[in-house]
Simulated scan of single mutants.
Amino acid sequence: MPSASTVQSEAVKSTSGRGQHKHLSDHQNPAAPSKSTEDVVTWLEESMHAQFEKTPVAVTQTSTVYKAQTSMYRGWMAVKIVNKRAIPASVAIKFLPRELNITMKVNHPHLARSYRILYPSPTKIVILSEFYENDRLLEMVLKQEKIKENPAAIRMFRQLIEAVHYLHERRIAHRDIKLENILLDRNGDIKLCDFGFARFVDFRERSTTFCGTRPYISPEISRFSPYDPFAADFYACGIVLYTMVVGQWPDLKTPHQALSFPDAVPSPACRRLIASLLDDDETTRACYEDVVNNEWSSLAPNWVFADNHFVYTVISPTASGPENQKNDDPSRKSSRG
């Protein structure tokens, strides 16, 4: 299957069709890293006394990611080396500074954690991040064909929604939520990553930069209409959930097309939640409160989210009263290291 295409208003002439892919296998053999990237690796090995694995974890047109270890940080880290020359000028000016700013500011158990950003040369940027041992969620779906709803899909989707909620409360719209941007740590917990299209947005502001990845883009983005980027994030979450529990992307080629499911999966409650997230009308589309209070989410009412840095508990999503409300202030979450 062709790889899902990235959509930007500066580069795309047409975005007709909302769901152009039915299968998920989109792997391509990565290209070899450039000589200049290898020179940066050598510099990092010497300056940080780091040990790099020889084969990159991933290579794209604009960046190379390595797995490395250094005494400066506990455990393995992911080293992303960005080639500024390979990035279009409009993206380098508009999107890259936002990505670097947001990457270092966010701090949540289900967002990828970055340690440091380095500038070894005028054309290279190095992002040091926590390394997550397991595959991306895309690979998990490909291997398992679909993810069992209870407890796995409910747990992982709630983690995703909590990460998105954390961003939205801080006026950050992600704008590129997809299976490829959801990593899994050794415990099978999700880490939303890649803030390349993320930006700070006022709550009533309409976005006119049409970005994202098919088939995760919402109908209003497909129409090039000014849109609510927070609502567009929840639409992408709906595509993620559908794909997790069904094992293929929904067939939504035209606006207002009825959402269809296989006969066996998912459950009626899950179908209703997906339909509410994929509502064509962004003003009535499901949001965070709708998800956490949904009957499907309530199948696992008590939640504990944790990683090496945080632990926090969410009591029943339908509970009321201050003693039962989720603690969303990161400064008040108990630290575990």
Score class of each variant (00 low, 15 high):
S25H: 06
S25W: 04
S25C: 03
D26R: 01
Q28W: 00
Q28F: 00
Q28S: 02
A32E: 14
P33R: 02
P33L: 06
P33H: 03
S34C: 06
S34K: 13
K35A: 10
S36Q: 11
T37N: 07
E38I: 03
E38D: 09
E38L: 11
D39N: 11
D39T: 11
V40S: 06
V41P: 11
V41Q: 06
V41N: 07
T42C: 09
T42D: 12
L44H: 02
L44C: 07
E45W: 01
E45L: 04
S47C: 10
M48G: 05
H49S: 15
H49W: 09
A50C: 13
A50E: 13
F52W: 09
F52Q: 11
F52I: 12
F52G: 11
F52N: 12
F52A: 10
E53G: 06
E53K: 08
K54I: 09
T55C: 06
T55G: 01
V57D: 01
A58T: 00
T60Q: 01
Q61A: 08
T62P: 05
T62H: 07
T62I: 08
S63R: 00
S63A: 09
T64E: 01
Y66V: 05
Y66L: 05
Y66P: 09
K67Y: 00
K67T: 02
A68T: 04
A68L: 04
Q69P: 00
Q69K: 08
T70R: 00
M72S: 09
R74D: 13
G75H: 07
G75S: 08
M77Q: 10
A78C: 10
A78G: 14
A78P: 12
A78F: 05
A78I: 09
A78N: 06
V79S: 08
K80A: 11
I81G: 07
I81N: 07
I81D: 07
V82S: 08
V82R: 04
N83D: 14
K84Y: 12
K84P: 13
